[in-house]
Design a protein around this nucleic acid. Structure first.
Lengths: 152, 152
DNA sequence: TCTATTTAGTTGTAATTGCAACTACTTTTT
DNA sequence: AAAAAGTAGTTGCAATTACAACTAAATAGA
């Protein structure tokens, strides 16, 4: 680590910009969801992740990994989602310690409902400001590089 | 709003990337701070913001605005920082409802101490992956555009 | 096989957050 | 100048999060 410790003004100001832009964007988007009486983004994240998974099911530890939540926090988030019927827990036959989270029909419906609002918000606050193809490609390339570096 | 509701696959995957990259980066950086026995980024944010302010002082409401915290959460964050002597509260002479948060010497020292670790982490996880000048300029331009849109 | 280690998930508890209500003060309106 | 409306900051309380300890089951090592 620390191959390049120096940080110039441009770099640190862009970092700051990255943090603030992220924060303000999320603020606006969460606001839209709240205005539409929809649950917050971390609910969406779980529902979407399950939807993408084979058979709409995922071991809790895998789910935690994907949605960037600690295991204990995931346990309780899953509790809440289960309580309102958006997913259910299934025992894992091959590993008696394990539990699957399985998306229910109501969960899928909710995912779609949230998406309709969420997608519009992403379009308004994000996508519509990425003017040309080249700009979005650059962003993609940079973010991919950052992500793989952060995951080692 | 909703000038452009459509969202194509590239756009939504880049949005997703933006969220995950941000989350993973912060995770790593917070980890570095914790390993160095330093307080979390929101403490830094307050200390830095005060350092930048004229006379190292800022009204609580202005501070809340800049660090992206609700007023009530700022009250308690300021409580914690005050309790360990990193800042102090001063009454505002011209508006008796008002309070200033003022950076103490210890607060300034702490800001610098955190910065030494934080800057290295930003360099390692962020800056050093922005290869050429053009890439960082593009990022700056895009983020600026997103930020101003999110702030209306 | 029997013990030690690791892994999956949950739970206790303390700290933090979010939201609404509240106090005190200031500004605007009439 | 009095009443109404708005602003600054704090507080109560419920919900969420973080961290560590815990139970149960699987795996590795002797």
């Amino acid at each position: 680590m620390n191959a390049k410790v120096q940080l110039n003004d441009l770099q640190s100001s862009v970092w700051r910009l990255f943090l603030t832009a992220h924060a303000r964007l999320l603020e606006q988007i969460e606001l839209r969801l709240a205005q539409a009486d929809l649950p917050p983004l971390d609910w969406y994240d779980v529902l979407f992740t399950l939807k993408e998974a084979p058979d709409h099911r995922l071991r809790l530890s895998d789910l935690a990994e994907k949605v960037l939540l600690s295991r204990s926090n995931l346990t309780r988030l899953v509790d809440r989602l289960e309580k309102v019927g958006l997913l259910r827990r299934d025992a894992c036959p091959s590993d008696r310690r394990g539990t699957f989270a399985v998306l229910t029909d109501a969960g899928l419906a909710m995912q779609q409902k949230i998406w309709s609002v969420y997608a519009a918000a992403i379009a308004d606050y994000f996508a519509c400001h990425l003017q040309n193809e080249e700009e979005i490609k650059t962003l993609q390339r940079v973010l991919n590089r950052l992500l793989s570096a952060a995951e080692q």
